[in-house]
Amino acid sequence: MKQNTLKYIGGLLLVLSLGACQRTFVASPVLENTDVPVDKTVTADPQMEAKIAPYRQEVVAKMSEVVGTAPKSLTKGSYETSLGNFVTDLQISQSQKLYGKPINFSLTTDGGLRVPLPEGNITTGHVFELMPFENELVVLTLTGDKVKELFDYAAQAKFVFINNSTYTVADSKATDIKINGKPLETNQTYTLVTSDYLAGGGDKLTMLKNPVKYEKVGMLLRDAILQQIRQLTAEGKPVTAEVQNRVTILP
C-alpha cells in the first residue's frame, strides 16, 4: 500500500514536471523499419502508371535516337581523359561561331561529366546522362595571374581538364605552363570557355569568379555536345578523342 502511494506520488511528480514544459504528448520513436525498399516485389500503382505512360512514350522516342558512333568508349579519370578532351575541344568549336572572337582554351571537370560515353552507338539518352544539367556555355576573360591559379588548382585537384595547354605537376603545383604552345604570360589576359556552373565557382574553382569579362555564348553545354556528335556523323566521322599527355607528373 505504502509502496503504491509512493509510486503514485512519483508518477504525479513526473506528470507535473513534464506538464510544466507544456508537452502533453511525448514522442517516442519506433525505429523498426526506417528504410522501406522500393523494389521489384512492390507492384506499380496502375493509376500512376497510366499518368506516366504518355510522358514516358515521348521520352523514350526522343532518347533512343542514335546520333553517332564511338569506336571505343570515352572515359573519365584524372588530369587528362579522352572524355575531357572531347568535351573541352567541342566547347571551343561549338562556341566559336556564336562568340565570334578567339577563345584561347577550354575547361571542364571530371565530376561535371557524369558518365563515360560508351563504345558503339551513342544515343541522345547517353548525352543526357553525360550532361543532365542545364548548364550553359560562357566565355570568361581572365588575368594571367588567375590562369596561373587555375593551373595550380588543376595540378592539385586532378579533376580539372584544360585543353590547348600543357603543364608539369611538381609538388602539387603547376610549372612549365604553356597555352597553345606558348608559355603563360601573367601580365596578359586569356579567354576561356566553360560552363556557367564552373564559372560561378562550382567544384571550388573560385579563381574563375569575378573575371575581367563574363560573356554568355547562348548555348547549353548538352546541346553543344549533341550538335558536335550530329555534325561528326553528318560528315561520316566517328566520335573519338585521344589522350595527348598534356600533363606531365613529376614523381
Binding site: L14, V15, F25, V26, S28, D35, V36, P37, V38
Partner: peptide
C-alpha cells in the same frame, strides 16, 4: 527513391516518456 523512409512515433498523453 530507392527507399521510402519510415519513422513511427508514439505519443502518450500521460507523459510517460518512452
Amino acid at each position: 527513391g530507392i527507399f521510402l523512409g519510415r519513422i513511427d512515433f508514439s505519443f502518450n498523453k500521460s507523459s510517460k516518456k518512452k
